[in-house]
Design a protein around this nucleic acid. Structure first.
Lengths: 213, 213, 213, 213
DNA sequence: AATGAATGAGTATTCATTCAT
DNA sequence: TATGAATGAATACTCATTCAT
């Protein structure tokens, strides 16, 4: 019954004016969804805040969820770009493992800190389509491969299954940071927290895992 | 304007008949929200599936979100009970660290696996009130304290700050398991995954952390 | 379509206990409707305030409007009793016209002042059945006749049509008092107001109306 | 808890299309509330009768009661206009007192006769906000002042307190006419009734009131 | 007779979406 | 292309009333 809705943007904004409109809409959407949550963020409010009419909004986005999706993808994209940049740097010149890990954790931390509320709405309230997550997963997999190669090459790293290690790395950081952002324990400072994650990963990656069952 | 809605149950079901009604409603709610998500799970559907009238539903739950909250609390309660049992066992007789960790991870894993879709709806779609999370956090803090004591006593554990370690332990497992459940990477089996988490924590806890900045 | 609902009390409370219950319900209804208005006055609230169960309420009153009707009739009854007493007194010994009129106005004024809010709810909010008004009218007509006889006999009164005069008397006082109670003009004291009504009626009744067309 | 609801119109209908819509809605509301009373007059029925969608109704009226309020204000406005016109005429050329009074009574009578059932619903059933009555009172006070000036100037009028007299005049007529419309006594014709009111007021106003206590 | 849990028709209101202008 | 008035399906929630206990 729930026919898969159209979620991709209706038209590619070719003209620069259109591109500005689309940006304005997305910016408005981000603000409105932050302030009002998913359910409270109506398309009317988004349009009004973006300074356009609802009609125009629907010219570029086929429905409300397409807005959410676009926002989520934009957010994810930023993350991907960041990781990509990081990996590029490190490919050029492999740093000490700790430096690499800290860099990685800090970047993800910053990314989450940028717009925590929007992030929360996007990932803890909005019914994002599974397509999004599949795509996200696919991209993350790519990165896993990259990371696993880095790990495999790195002299400080000893691990049997770099791919698995890479996945653990990404997921553990993601999970820890996510939890920290939304319910920061009063007694732990960000600096402490980041250092502790780095330490944990360092231990994890630098020990030969032969001992495991 | 968004006055805090009443979310606590309307009346305590004293009679056995009422208690059965309340159970039926919660059971129905779990099923409906699983199938239809938060937005699609209407109170009418819940009542119908529970085999009661909407009126009865509203006799015990002041509104839709109270239903979600009750479900979430029930879910959380199960988790707390499980952890509590675990810790009690371990207090009686301290096992090898690896055994302890594995037990812990497996338990959390099972808990998430029980009703993954409901879990997803509850924590990734429903606008649970912050009170819920505060309460959850408070309980988790208690457990952190217990865990930290265990860690402090444990001969295999070397860590400067057992409280911080306990927090990391809980959050890392939570985050990793959560991520794994919802988007299980095809290439990693649950067994492998669990073992890897255990290994990671083992490394983290058993190494003296004096080296850290 | 709107089948005429049953409005008369379901059973005559023969036992004294039942009579007490009925009184309690009416008392509760009066309080609740005062506080909450017609729409806000639910049968549950009425029952609770009366200290009985909804079921018991429905044992004596077939539906919500029967409650209103009973209240209205009770209120009207008080008025009738009062007027009746007044007329009886005056039949025994005819007083000066002004005394009679003042007495009359003051009585009606007091009657309205007793429970103005209930009165308002009853007559300005509740959809009382036309039967009530017909019955009320009939009773008022009876009184008109009595009053007209008094007027006809009174030496100070000169009027061609005592029946009409009686009707005007009753209606004018009713209307003026009603208006005064609900929206009392700040600048006019009750005493002043009552005196002015008496004066008006005095002029009206004591002048020969032969001049009229 | 009963937060004062928004009752003022949502948007001023600027375009001619919108103005037509608003008119249609009010017309439909008048008809529906007449036929079905306050409680029975649902917003769906109103919209259907007006030939618009419920959505459109709510575009211009924030809720059901705002509809009632608008209707009441429209009704009151007509009355005010009528009285205003009357007073203007009389200011230009002062007529005989009887002519003035008859004119006044007849006008009010006609106003009530126009849509008696709507009038009843509006003032005897609908929970109009007190603001409405305060505003109405304020306007009526203005008119009282005008009328009192007329009375003060009029050679046929002898009264100590023209302001009080004006108030009595307005309220008595209002009350008598109101009562007559809703429960017209079979034995009194409108003509007779109007004449009798005029006579009463004539006596009241033309006699020196020095005699009063 | 009394209770109060259960009922479910009924309604106000919202908001994503369309389309005439 | 832009607008925003119009649409109406969808839904949370109430409350008069019933009836098993």
């Amino acid at each position: 019954m729930p026919l898969k809705k159209q979620l991709s943007p209706r038209k590619q904004p070719a003209q620069s004016r259109s591109r500005a409109t689309v940006s304005a809409i997305l910016e408005g959407a981000a603000q409105v969804f932050c302030r009002e949550g998913y359910a409270g963020g109506t398309t009317d409010k988004v349009a009004k805040r973006a300074g356009v009419s609802v009609g125009s909004l629907y010219q570029y986005f086929p429905n409300k969820d397409a807005l959410l999706l676009a926002l989520a993808e934009q957010h994810a994209e930023e993350g991907f770009v960041m990781i990509h940049r990081l990996l590029s740097e490190f490919k050029a010149e492999l740093p000490a493992l700790e430096v690499f890990l800290r860099q990685f954790v800090v970047s993800l931390f910053d990314l989450h800190m940028r717009e925590p509320e929007l992030h929360r709405v996007l990932f803890n309230e909005a019914p994002l389509p599974s397509e999004f997550f599949e795509k996200k997963e696919a991209r993350e997999y790519e990165f896993s491969i990259c990371v696993s190669k880095l790990l495999a090459e790195h002299p400080e790293v000893h691990c049997k299954n770099p791919e698995l290690a890479a996945h653990m790395l990404v997921q553990a950081v993601e999970g820890l940071v996510h939890g920290y952002i939304f319910f920061p324990p009063r007694s732990i400072t960000p600096k402490e927290f980041i250092s502790e994650i780095v330490f944990m990963l360092l231990q994890y990656l630098s020990q030969p895992s032969e001992t495991r069952g």
